[in-house]
Simulated assay, not measured.
Amino acid sequence: MGSRLFTRPSPALVLALAAAAVWIALPIPERTPTGSPVGPAVRSVAEEWPGTTPAEFLGTFFDGTPFTPLLYLDELTVVATAPTPDGERVRLVVYTPGEEARELATLSADDAPGFTAVAADDERIVWTQTVPDAKGVARTGIWTAPAGLAEAEAVRVTADTGDALFTGSQYDLQIAGGSVHWAAGTRGSAPATELRSHPLSGGETTTVTLEGEFAWSAWPYAVSNGGAAGEGVLLADMAAENTTVIPVETGALATCTPVWCRVLALGMAGPGGTELMRTDGSQRRRIADERTSAAVPDPMLLDRFEVLLDVSAADADGQPLLIFDQVSGKTLLVASDARIVRARGATVWWSTGDEETLKWHALNLARLE
């Protein structure tokens, strides 16, 4: 296994490199006031873009078992998990309504957490299986199978995954440059993160170790967690092997991609609202108050849409699902009764109802032009 160290510098070194223009540290900008209230939306996506209709289908298979989408391959084809009819096993399947589900893999229902991440490109589907070994220690393997509904045997890519980390982000597992990429924790006294890669054509797992807590973002970037103590968020370009400091003031928590950051102002009672800013510190604006929360881990899908939930209006049927469109500056209603909400790439999907009334809905944000 190849390995190299990508060291997080000391504060003194950061300052020195900043003076040499190797690191970029920008001042905290003035916030841009919003021109409209930042509470619940008053206009729907369908009203803003007439003719927009989310895809919708029943949340059960022909055998009556419910399924949960993990990834939309297109607006009607999903990679999903579903129990077997007897409840003893969990299946990972590819499914299009009206077609028989293609089974990729099965695990015992006791093998929690089971299927922990999935990614796909035009040629293949890649997923992780995290199950306890004989000593009860969780072990993760990475598997692959050809894309499409045709039956094909799954192949294990590697079991050399370390202490793999999965947060629900679309970047937990990703395919780029002919390899699959993921992050793993370390067991040393000081926090560090292993960014791991394995060629899909075969070979050895390579590891780059970053000092501190990092996660993959949009390839080839990794981003550090938080910044709540005022030290800023580090954005590491793993291809160019350089790092940028994204300024975050003390008392704020930032989640960043290479382009945008979601910034939460933290108070005694929790987050006091949501702001967005570009990673160079520009275009900072408050988009939501304490009545809303982020609906998905990743900020700014397509570098344009922030997905939110109106938690103040939650009830037994669900809660309003919203999107903020940074192009128009509007917050728009997607659904009034969303339960489970997920997003990957251009697609945000959500459930409504339960048991016999369970449905899944999907909105392709790329169509909102």
Rank of each mutant, 00 (worst) to 15 (best):
G178E: 13
S44E: 05
V78S: 14
A236K: 00
A183Q: 00
W360E: 10
P220R: 05
C261H: 12
T331P: 09
L76T: 10
T257A: 08
L13F: 14
P199N: 08
T186S: 05
A21M: 01
R304F: 02
R102G: 09
V245H: 06
E48Q: 06
G136C: 11
A55M: 06
E103R: 11
T96A: 14
S336R: 15
P191T: 01
D289V: 12
D122I: 09
T206D: 05
G267L: 14
D298N: 02
R284A: 08
D310P: 07
E290Q: 12
A252Y: 14
I24S: 14
S293T: 09
R339M: 04
S328N: 09
V157D: 03
E194Q: 03
R286T: 11
R291G: 10
L302V: 04
A134F: 08
L365E: 04
S44L: 02
R262K: 05
D74E: 07
L322V: 00
M238S: 00
T7N: 07
P29H: 06
V248I: 13
T250W: 08
R139K: 11
V131Q: 07
N364W: 10
R284H: 07
G98L: 12
A176R: 03
L266D: 04
E204T: 12
A119I: 05
R187E: 08
T161R: 03
A215R: 01
A183D: 00
T186P: 01
R262G: 06
T60F: 13
A184F: 01
G141Q: 01
W143C: 02
N364I: 09
S312Q: 11
M277K: 15
P247W: 02
Y221I: 00
V263N: 08
A215G: 05
D121Q: 15
F57E: 08
E241L: 13
A20T: 06
A18R: 07
V22N: 01
T81L: 05
T244P: 09
A269Y: 01
A316F: 08
D303S: 09
G185Y: 02
T255K: 04
V296N: 03
G98E: 11
P9T: 02
W349I: 12
P132T: 13
N225L: 15
L234C: 00
R278V: 13
T60H: 13
V22P: 02
Q326C: 12
P299A: 07
P297Q: 06
R339G: 03
E48R: 04
Q319C: 15
L309R: 07
G232T: 11
N242E: 15
A80K: 08
E48N: 03
W127R: 01
W143D: 03
E355N: 06
S108T: 09
L302T: 04
T106Y: 07
L58K: 10
T255M: 04
P297L: 09
M1C: 11
P83C: 09
T60P: 14
